[in-house]
Design a protein around this nucleic acid. Sequence first.
DNA 1: TTGACTCCCATAAAATCCCATGTTAACCCA
DNA 2: TGGGTTAACATGGGATTTTATGGGAGTCAA
Lengths: 154, 154
Amino acid sequence: MALFISTFVNKVDRKGRVSVPASFRAALRGQSFNGIVAFRSYREATIEGCAIDRMEELSRGLDALDQFSEEQDQLASTIFADAHQLAIDGDGRITLPPLLAEHAGITDAAAFVGRGATFQVWAPDTFAAHQEEARKRAAERGATLRLVPRGKSE
Amino acid sequence: MALFISTFVNKVDRKGRVSVPASFRAALRGQSFNGIVAFRSYREATIEGCAIDRMEELSRGLDALDQFSEEQDQLASTIFADAHQLAIDGDGRITLPPLLAEHAGITDAAAFVGRGATFQVWAPDTFAAHQEEARKRAAERGATLRLVPRGKSE
DNA sequence: TTGACTCCCATAAAATCCCATGTTAACCCA
DNA sequence: TGGGTTAACATGGGATTTTATGGGAGTCAA
């Protein structure tokens, strides 16, 4: 199982290219499409990213929601409509579409943030603030971590 | 199930490398990734370590939560964003990322402390103080370890 | 032609591999 | 049981490879 772990800050050059962290590339290896799928987060100023395989799962997840709910409808149009397939070039880089970069406020650097099965791409400053906030709340509710269900293999 | 037991103090060389205790390496053997996952403890001056399998379980646990809920978001950014994948080289060593080493106050030596399914990496001095403190409090409260009943799958 | 995009190459820094060595622990055998 | 031999481990240093990152040449379409 491929996991996206850790945070990497890479530079965006004047052509809009960024190196995808090597460990993320390793997690993406062996897929039908050598690249990532990216779409705007509808909640925050960040780009959501994942492997193409993941999109299929996400699609199944949407199907499980109430077909005619407003929420389902919004998610479907937000995610799939403006999702981009970004190919990884020979040097391990992708080119950020201006629309996405703008949404995240990314100009000269991008933070790739692992989240397990998915990852996010942030403007470094924005992410620092967001993470600080998340840490604070995690510390307040330290017990939350234990609520995550364990697998049977333990 | 992999078990991390006992405490080992190893030297950190000028490149930031440390030998992972042999018995810990044995516990890590046969996983999808030959290495450890490390992240800063948010309550103490130590590095938390575990096997990648454990992270995969966590990831599955996250998937069980609502994909775009705030809770899911918070956990993901606290756990995965902060974590580092540290590969074990041919000589059984890992390289400590400066950020983590700094958080734990580790400079020229590191104490690997087994905790069963996980372990911690401390600066030896800090750990000695911490352990002393823990013993004192355990004695005061007459703390006991209660055994968790086994599941059938084990 | 101009702009956007894709390859390809160059380079510096960092991560990784490889080998050598002293030391300790395990093993074997008479 | 004692002593010698091996094997495993921790640790240092050098060599090699990978990464991130910049720039230029070629391609295609409007």
